[in-house]
Amino acid sequence: MTILWILLAAFIAACALGVVLSRSPITSAISLLVGFVGVGVLYLCLKAEFVAAVQVFVYAGGIMVLYVIGVMFTDSEALRLNRQTHMQAWPAFFLVLLLFLWMGHKLYHAEYKAVPSAITIAVATSPEDEARTKQALEAKAALARDTNPRQVSVALFSDYLYPFEAASVLLTVAVLGGIFLAKKEV
């Protein structure tokens, strides 16, 4: 599993490098597309199937199409032969390095509290109480039967309903603003 993860991470990193380093916008766009699919596979490995499908559906299938269409109309030889400036490369590199080290430090020293499963709690608190253990086992089995999309939707529409609705309003406002800016007076 670790080997698989390293291969996948290297693949995604290579795609990301391709996006940044490539001179042709269309090559960048295609690297980004493949990278999106790679991230989808990563989600799949983490058993977040729903997020993986949405990643491919929305990013690779929706947003990338618009990107690619946009890129096709702006791709010109003159643009590609332009000398690229690298003035910001070093400051950016140090900033990103700093950010990376800080994140790594935080992640390394973070306390990972394993979420105790119902069965462990039940067994730990009352090893003799057979009825409770059985109940906990049943609860665990029910959790295992629960599907990934259902878990996501329960979380989205109960615990996080307010941020979810707020985000959708924000997106609607953004779309309306985009239309208002782009549309000519009729």
């Binding site: 199937e49 729903f50 499908a53 491919v56 199409v65 990934n148 999309p149």
Partner: peptide
Amino acid sequence: DLGILFVLAISSLSIF
């Protein structure tokens, strides 16, 4: 579990 969503996600790539 994803079923039909999987088909929709994959077939959205055919536009490329």
